[in-house]
């Protein structure tokens, strides 16, 4: 189960991800990002669990300039590992 909360102050949009994020949640999240302002940050403080598709997505977000806030060490490590294996 993944809850998505969006908060915007007019200059910056913060998207808070809460719960477990898996492949099936990605289309909705992509749509939300698309309709938001350019300066977007993903707050991962309450993101408890991710699968490999979610990790790749988060890695892609970071490469596209989005900030990943409060990222768990294992997710950060996993993103790095995925990027390394992808090169």
């Amino acid at each position: 189960m993944l809850n998505i909360e969006k908060n915007s102050d007019g200059h910056k949009t913060t998207i808070r991800l809460i719960g477990r994020m898996q492949a099936e949640h990605l289309p909705a999240l992509q749509a939300l990002i698309k309709e938001s302002r350019p300066r977007i940050a993903l707050d991962l403080e309450q993101l408890t669990l991710v699968d490999v598709e979610a990790v790749r997505f988060l890695g892609g977000c970071r490469r596209n300039g989005m900030a990943l806030l409060n990222c768990s060490p294992y997710i950060r490590e996993w993103i790095a590992k995925e990027q390394k294996s992808g090169k």
């Binding site: 477990r20 669990l49 991710v50 699968d51 490999v52 990790v55 996993w78 590992k81 995925e82 294996s85």
Partner: peptide
């Protein structure tokens, strides 16, 4: 049991 999704080994990729 949901932590099983964590991982991107060859076996897991094959399952995906």
């Amino acid at each position: 049991m949901f932590e099983e999704i964590v991982g991107s080994s060859k076996g897991m990729r094959n399952i995906q």
